[in-house]
Design a binder for these strands. Structure first.
Lengths: 190, 190
DNA sequence: AAATTGACCGGAAATCTCATTCGGTCATAA
DNA sequence: TTATGACCGAATGAGATTTCCGGTCAATTT
């Protein structure tokens, strides 16, 4: 029973955060949307930020699941990195909550939102780092610092998928995969 | 004679922009510093922004010169890219004017400053692009889109030199050169 | 007595008002 | 013809005032 109510609150809060962002959703509103008194929320969550964090935690879990699903062990390492990262970044563009959050970070810089986006990036980086470590162990790629490598890979990927679009025509998915392979895997030397 | 005065104004303005930033330097102040009536400035420059632009143009020229100086034709392509980019980014950290400008962009977002920083980045990108084109012609590196390649190179470089420092120990210059070679030139595949 | 609620509190943020600043002009002076 | 600085109005900022909202807790319900 109290389990139901917590779920209700989480769903209402998710909906509201997705629709209005973090700052613009009030606890009163969440209470109304979940048919609960405002005080009740505070029996399940210490404060607004913890409620937010719990929502983000499940968002991250969802993203991880989506990435895992995109991976196919019969394909090459680089192709799987591509598929995983593409799924994650696609997720970011398709889900209300992430869209709203990135928007809020850019145009308001809400501290709680910035922190949460940091967590999200850390999660991606960690995910990637594990994949890189595994690839080194298996002898699929050259020996290197997995953390730094994951960091560079993500930067290159974001550069190709988002940053390039700021001043140029967007690149197609296939092209991005090709470029990623060329720059990161094969290298430019002959 | 009028040449002298224009120079005086440019020097005074450069000093003031370096010291106080774009927004906080007033035309009155530039006039005082250059021993000239305020109106006189407007006989040489259409407005504050054009005065600023002219200063930035010479800043860019200086950076280009510094980069050229760092380049040694007897060294490899990647090593020269490293030396050139390092010089440019070092320049950015050592010169009052650029320091102040990047600070002003970050914490105030002054439009004129943002635009000028865009110009600066374009100049770097173009400089790099030319080097890449040349390297392709000479057959030193694999065939590729020079603009996109310059873009990715710069992203990786900035990632290694600035972004990594946000959450980790800074990398040494030598290490950066090595990593740059590993990631961009040699690639990760075996 | 355990759980739920919403009126209430205080500080943060938004809004409004009014004073100041500064980019740019132009009549006057050199 | 060239140089100047007093002057203009728009934009900015400081200060005062109001509104808003996260979080608490005494009262109420179960």
């Amino acid at each position: 029973m109290s389990f139901d109510r917590k779920q209700q609150i989480l769903e209402a809060a998710t909906k509201s955060f997705s629709l209005f962002g973090y700052k613009a959703t009030t606890m009163e509103q969440v209470a109304k949307l979940s048919n609960v008194g405002k005080g009740t929320i505070y029996t399940f969550f210490k404060n607004k930020e913890e409620l937010f964090d719990e929502i983000i935690r499940s968002l991250i879990a969802e993203m991880k699941a989506a990435a895992d699903e995109a991976i196919d062990p019969s394909l090459s390492f680089y192709e799987n990195v591509h598929r995983g990262l593409y799924k994650i970044l696609e997720f970011r563009l398709k889900h209300q909550l992430t869209i709203k959050l990135f928007q809020e970070e850019k145009e308001m810089g809400t501290p709680a939102v910035m922190e949460v986006i940091g967590q999200l990036e850390d999660a991606i980086l960690n995910y990637l780092k594990d994949k890189v470590s595994l690839a080194i162990e298996k002898g699929v790629i050259r020996e290197c610092d997995p953390e730094l490598t994951a960091f560079v890979m993500l930067k290159v990927y974001i550069a190709l998928i988002f940053d390039w679009e700021q001043h140029h025509e967007p690149l197609e998915k296939e092209k991005i995969a090709m470029l990623f392979e060329q720059y990161i895997m094969k290298g430019l030397s002959l």
